[in-house]
């Protein structure tokens, strides 16, 4: 007890100051959120109307027009990416937390950590080389591959951390009942951790959902309707990017509206995930 020499009053004061500091930290984060979203809201709300969700993009100066194809396209491209990254990521995390000892597991962990630092644009380059140059054209699918590359390490690392938080006593109890390990993992570990898992997946979706750089050279974009995964597809971030860098107010407004919709979609997804997590027993 090296702190024993200090007076209790002083220790108490330090304690209060530090705990107050934690309150301040939380306030700062929340204030920043409101500040940034408020900024986007003020700039983007004028651009939001029914047309925005139902119409195709129009050029500068043409009234109306929306980003219906980009909204649907984003859902499809991110959805396909999640379909690829989530099962692989969660399974890999199961391996790491339940079986993973030794060199193989630590190298997987290590590579996942390193992959988390791959800039989005590099994921785009890789997906281009793997898919686009082989298929000979841009496609929604190649965009999903790029996003899946970005999602995978996030899902693995966050899932593993969550699995580690499942108390060992639960596993032991299940095993003691004669339930095999694989069923224990599925019925006990995965279920107990489901809330945290969903949070991790959400974070991953939120993280890649707004990326434009990896999609430019993969999903490309489309001024028209297309739902085919083997054809170029419009996405919100790419449209946002195109509009934001243009010189025209008309399009700037649409860019901010797109940002607002993007944030709103992730918000909805978050809420859905929270409701899911609450419905489940577990922590």
């Amino acid at each position: 007890m090296n702190g024993g020499g200090l007076g209790y009053g002083r220790r108490k004061l330090t304690g209060h100051v530090m705990m107050a500091g934690s309150l301040v930290a939380a306030c700062i984060a929340v204030a920043l959120l409101f500040w940034i979203i408020g900024y986007v809201f003020i700039k983007g709300i004028h651009g939001i109307n029914l047309d925005f969700f139902t119409e195709l993009p129009t050029p500068v100066g043409v009234e109306g027009g929306g980003l219906a194809n980009a909204i649907v396209g984003s859902i499809i491209v991110v959805g396909m990416a999640a379909l690829m990254a989530v099962p692989v990521g969660v399974a890999a995390a199961v391996y790491l937390s339940e079986y993973g000892r030794g060199l193989f597991a630590s190298s997987v962990r290590f590579v996942a950590d390193v992959l988390a630092g791959v800039p989005a644009i590099v994921a785009g380059i890789v997906a281009y080389a793997l898919v686009v140059s082989r298929m000979g054209r841009f496609s929604a699918f190649s965009g999903s591959v790029a996003l899946a590359i970005l999602m995978l390490p996030i899902i693995i690392r966050s899932s593993e951390e969550i699995f580690k938080t499942v108390p060992n006593t639960l596993r032991e109890a299940s095993l003691a009942l004669g339930i095999p390990r694989w069923r224990t993992v599925i019925k006990v570990v995965l279920r107990t951790a489901s809330g945290g898992l969903v949070t991790g997946i959400m974070l991953a979706v939120a993280r890649v959902g707004g990326e434009a750089a990896p999609l430019l050279f993969t999903a490309f974009s489309n001024s028209f309707w297309s739902l085919r995964p083997d054809q170029p597809m419009a996405t919100l971030p790419v449209q946002l990017f195109n509009y934001a860098i243009s010189p025209y107010d008309d399009w700037h407004e649409k860019a901010w509206a797109a940002a607002l919709v993007l944030i709103f979609m992730v918000l909805m997804l978050n809420i859905a995930a929270k409701m899911y997590a609450h419905r489940r027993p577990g922590r």
Partner: peptide
């Protein structure tokens, strides 16, 4: 890009030919 998107939008309206131009 802004000009091309305007031209190609009008072109599709008038001729039915779709021109998908993207600024990469």
């Amino acid at each position: 890009y802004p000009l091309y998107s305007k031209w190609f939008y009008n072109y599709e309206k008038q001729t039915g030919t779709r021109v998908n131009y993207q600024s990469i």
